[in-house]
């Protein structure tokens, strides 16, 4: 998709259940797969990447839809840990 639409036009939105998993997924689409397991090993796409629970994304979604789809998980997740991890990955590796 990054090739087809241009990496500057792609935003990746994650739904991982905790900080470390979010960080690994975010690193995969920015710096390259840190686990060296998949096709993005050694490929640095530098895409914009957010977690669905980050305020930047939450603010863009219809409040009722968000409550129906994410409301329950928002109560369960460690939102602070996820946001810190995501901001760290973006500041280091996102190119756009």
């Amino acid at each position: 998709m990054a090739e087809q639409y241009g990496p500057e036009n792609v935003v990746v939105i994650l739904g991982a259940a905790e900080g470390e998993a979010s960080g690994i997924a975010a690193e995969t689409v920015t710096a390259g797969d840190p686990t060296f397991a998949g096709p993005l090993t050694g490929v640095s796409l530098g895409l914009k990447v957010y977690h669905i629970c980050e305020e930047e994304i939450k603010g863009l979604v219809d409040a009722d839809v968000y409550e129906e789809q994410v409301g329950m998980m928002e109560m369960v997740l460690d939102l602070g840990e996820i946001a810190t991890e995501m901001q760290s990955i973006r500041s280091q590796f996102t190119k756009f």
């Binding site: 259940a17 409301g71 329950m72 998980m73 109560m75 369960v76």
Partner: peptide, 13 residues
């Protein structure tokens, strides 16, 4: 633990 939290969160909702 994640599963129990999700079930509990639904009970809260």
């Amino acid at each position: 633990a994640s599963n129990f939290k999700m079930i509990g969160a639904l009970a809260v909702k």
